[in-house]
Amino acid sequence: MHSSVGHQNLPSEPVDIRLIVADMDGTLLDDAGNPPPRLRRVLALLRRRGVLFSPASGRQYATLARLFSGVDDGMIFIAENGTHVVRDGRELGSDPLDPAVAARLVKKVRGLADGGIDVGAVVCGKHRAYTERADEAFLAQVAKYYVAHESVEDATAVDDEINKIALFDFGPAALTTAPALAEFTETHQVVVSSEHWIDVMNRTANKGAALRRVQQDLGITPAQTLVFGDYLNDLEMLDAADWSFAMANAHADVLDRARYTAPSNNDDGVLRTIERLLRLPATHNG
């Protein structure tokens, strides 16, 4: 088995960690989108230690809540790349888009699609996600991250607060769709969150900003915070924790930014690192 490696040696003594924040796709979940089989056992151990666990993802709150159903009591969900933070069904913070900006983005994506780019927009509302594109291949991608979604004729006219606009590009998003959104980069964040997904949010919104608000509200310091990430939308979140880990499979910029490296998402890197740092009893065979 691989051991955790990093820019510095890990301490031999248990670390005082009060909050653990983990990205989902490419980090906690394996490449098939499955959580580690022993995740719930580790979460139970953390709960007994008084350590909070927080999923931080581009996924919507409803999707995260379903994934952690039954073990979500007191859990803090940093959803929609930090634009929507929820605990025990109560919203702790949000940073919604101006509806006019959301409408401009939807129209921009319509134009890109008309021009031959295989792309579609997901309007990420607080209550559900909305899509105009309704073909099976596109909706299959949407359903992975947005369990509460519906197809609409006009996504510029939905009656919901909009957290962000997510774009799925069947090609390499960084090379096709991202450059076409240059007009939005002056006023908003245009984040390539994976090979095929791009998120457009307010400039003030990111996982790191959401995490810092959570730390302030709970009186938890960066020195008591452990964070795991793998892609560009995790960079600010890594900056908010002294114990910042990039997955071995992470984007090069993430590997450079994090203080430490964890084994890959397919090697159960998050749980193995947690167990090592907090000296949890091994649950591999439990």
Rank of each mutant, 00 (worst) to 15 (best):
H196E: 06
K126Y: 04
V200C: 05
T176F: 11
A174L: 13
K108Q: 11
P179A: 12
N163G: 03
A140L: 10
V190K: 03
D95F: 13
T204Q: 15
S193F: 04
F170Y: 08
K144F: 09
T83A: 12
A174P: 09
A178N: 12
A182H: 08
D88K: 00
V142L: 13
C124V: 13
T131P: 14
G120N: 05
H188L: 03
A102L: 13
E186F: 10
T204Y: 14
G82V: 00
R90M: 12
R133S: 14
V147Q: 07
A113L: 15
I117R: 11
A137S: 13
L167A: 04
Y146V: 00
E161C: 04
A137I: 08
V190Y: 01
D114Q: 12
P96W: 13
A155R: 03
D199H: 09
T187I: 02
D159P: 07
K164L: 02
K107H: 15
E136H: 10
P179N: 14
R133F: 14
A173R: 08
I162Q: 03
T204I: 11
S193E: 01
T204F: 15
E153S: 13
T185M: 08
S151C: 09
E183H: 11
K107M: 09
G120R: 08
V190Q: 01
V101R: 09
A155C: 06
D98T: 01
I198R: 07
A155F: 06
S94F: 07
T177H: 04
V109D: 00
V119N: 03
T156G: 06
T185H: 08
A166W: 05
F184I: 03
L92G: 05
L175S: 13
R90C: 12
V152L: 10
P99W: 10
A103Q: 11
R133K: 14
V86P: 01
H196D: 12
V147G: 04
M201Y: 02
V147D: 10
V109N: 00
K108F: 04
